[in-house]
């Protein structure tokens, strides 16, 4: 049973020791990793996924429940408690979606009779995040970028059902990311998002700040920031509606912006 992951700091670029030397993540935590491009965010989640033990270039160490993780986590992927979805994670398999998910479900659950139910749940989850539903008979490689990402997330949450899920820049995936966050929140796991998206960052319990390959700060989302989260959410929803109007071949009108106009800096201050 996984209760905590601990990140023990190593060194960043130019062998500089990290400012933050220890971070503990508890079961149920939703955490974001933020920082400019090239600051080492992806490297950090790779370290977590590899159970770094001072043997990656960053020299970081990852502990599970306060101890060195058992080697079986690395030896057998189906015992690995971490699912990682990176920006370049893709499906390369040309198997039909149904066959692939079915095979994966049978590997993961000892009780083969549950496999079909898991596949159905996974497809239902994925289809809530995509514009056009995934057709179970299409080949994995035929899926769009958004459908692929949606299916990866759904597979990680439902079939892998790993206690730890790492998601790299899910906002770039072209999926309904707020819905994804809502759905994922229903599962009790440790979620780690690498993100540039203020909405995802503010919905996290805390965020890890990266600079020049180092973890420089850990910022907990405080009460004031949680209020901003509402504003950010409204702005984001307004933008999503505009995006959807464009997507579905409609014209934008002045009325589409009435809500957005409330969010000039002065008005935003007044609104809060």
């Amino acid at each position: 049973m996984i209760k905590t992951i601990t990140i023990l700091g190593g060194e960043g670029k130019a062998d500089k020791a990290e400012e933050v030397q220890r971070i503990d993540l508890n079961m149920g935590d939703v955490v974001s990793i933020v920082g400019p491009t090239g600051s080492g965010k992806t490297t950090l989640i790779n370290d977590i996924e590899l159970f770094a033990d001072g043997d990656t270039p960053t020299k970081r160490r990852i502990l599970i429940n306060g101890e060195r993780p058992p080697s079986v986590y690395r030896d057998d992927p189906s015992r690995n408690p971490i699912a990682l979805i990176t920006q370049h994670t893709n499906f390369l398999s040309d198997l039909p979606v149904r066959v692939f998910l079915g095979t994966h479900a049978r590997i993961r659950c000892a009780d083969g009779s549950r496999a079909d139910a898991l596949v159905a749940q996974t497809l239902a989850f994925a289809n809530q995040l995509t514009g056009e539903p995934v057709i179970p008979d299409s080949r994995m490689t035929e899926l769009s970028g958004g459908q692929t990402r949606a299916l990866l997330i759904a597979d990680a949450a439902i079939i892998c059902n790993t206690p730890i899920v790492l998601l790299d820049e899910v906002e770039n995936a072209g999926i309904h990311r707020t819905r994804a966050l809502e759905l994922l929140r229903q599962y009790r796991k440790i979620f780690i998002f690498v993100t540039h998206d203020p909405r995802i960052a503010l919905l996290s319990d805390f965020r890890i700040v990266m600079r020049s390959g180092c973890i420089t700060r850990v910022i907990h989302t405080d009460a004031a920031e949680r209020t901003f989260a509402l504003t950010v959410g409204c702005l984001d929803d307004a933008l999503s509606r505009l995006r959807d109007k464009i997507r579905f071949g409609k014209h934008l009108e002045k009325t589409d912006f009435t809500e957005l106009e409330r969010f000039t800096p002065e008005r935003e201050a007044a609104f809060l």
């Binding site: 790779n46 979805i85 994966h104």
Partner: peptide
């Protein structure tokens, strides 16, 4: 690192 967890297992 180029494929999903799911594909590794399959």
């Amino acid at each position: 690192d180029l494929v999903s967890q799911a594909e590794r297992e399959v």
